[in-house]
């Protein structure tokens, strides 16, 4: 029998510190599979944010550089402008990208920076214990919305893909979900397309990944994956939101 599936080369052998069933783990592996297949390992710099995935540099076997909270897009801009031949990707959570880093994200997209953003949307601030995030769903209980998010007080979940898509500098945005094997396959294609967009210098590319957070959602891993697939996709519909290569909607 032939070995047909194993750990990607650019994913270090270290065990993940992530909780059982966490979406970060799957996202890490898929990004590394794409880095392997596109042979980017020796010319890529990754930028993890503060958050659960701050330890991404223990897992990604590429050059990694830490950024301040929310400033990943600006750091990536600095890198890409100084060395355009380097492939840069930021790996950001919803608090990082859609909360404190909204301005940096929007302006990097609007300038059409040739960078790729892996945006993990799990609707909570994970590392700090499950507080409300900009993408927390209405009615969703978090440690800072113990009675459920009430739009009258805390407003509505922020849809970044829809917000960034109309910007002219944006070349490719797709929202995918870690909720099923098919979802993960779809994610891999999207991540590959995003990196290809950067390689072809077409402008800003982002993959928004709806991601389960069993611990902070207080669910079992399987329940959290189902919740992503059934609940989150209601508020954050999946699909291609911008693709300058194929302007028609949906793929």
């Amino acid at each position: 029998m032939k070995l047909i599936y194993s750990r990607p080369k650019s994913l270090k052998k270290a065990a993940f510190h992530y909780c059982p069933g966490c979406g970060h783990s799957v996202a890490h592996r898929v990004v590394c599979e794409v880095i392997d297949e596109m042979e980017l390992q020796d010319k890529t710099i990754g930028i993890p944010p503060p958050g659960c995935s701050v330890f991404a540099y223990n897992y990604f076997d590429v050059d990694m550089a830490e950024s301040a909270h929310g400033r990943g897009a600006a750091v990536a801009t600095g890198i890409k402008r100084a060395c355009p031949q380097i492939i840069v990707f930021t790996y950001q959570g919803d608090g990082d990208l859609a909360g404190i880093g909204t301005a940096e994200t929007i302006h990097a997209a609007n300038r059409g920076e040739n960078i790729t953003t892996i945006f993990i949307n799990n609707a909570v601030y994970g590392m700090t214990g499950g507080q409300m995030a900009p993408t927390t769903l209405c009615g969703m209980k978090t440690t800072t919305t113990p009675y459920g998010r009430d739009h009258v007080i805390e407003g509505y979940p922020l849809r970044m893909s829809e917000m960034l898509a109309p910007l002219d500098g944006v070349a490719y945005i797709e929202r995918v979900a870690i909720s099923s094997p098919a979802g993960i396959r779809r994610m891999k294609k999207a991540v590959a397309k995003a990196f290809q967009t950067q390689i072809d210098n077409r402008g800003f590319s982002m993959v928004e990944i709806l991601s389960p957070c069993p611990t902070n959602w207080k669910m079992t891993p399987a329940q959290s994956w189902k919740w992503v697939g059934e609940e989150m996709t209601q508020v954050f519909p999946l699909g291609v939101y911008k693709d300058v290569m194929e302007p028609k909607h949906a793929d």
Binding site: K2, I4, Y5, S6, F16, G21, V26, P181, R185, P221
Partner: peptide
């Protein structure tokens, strides 16, 4: 059948799949 679905969903990259 070695369909690799388990490896696809495994967060810990703990599963290796073999097939004919």
């Amino acid at each position: 059948t070695g369909c690799a679905v388990c490896a696809l969903v495994c967060p810990e990259v703990a599963i290796e799949v073999y097939r004919d």
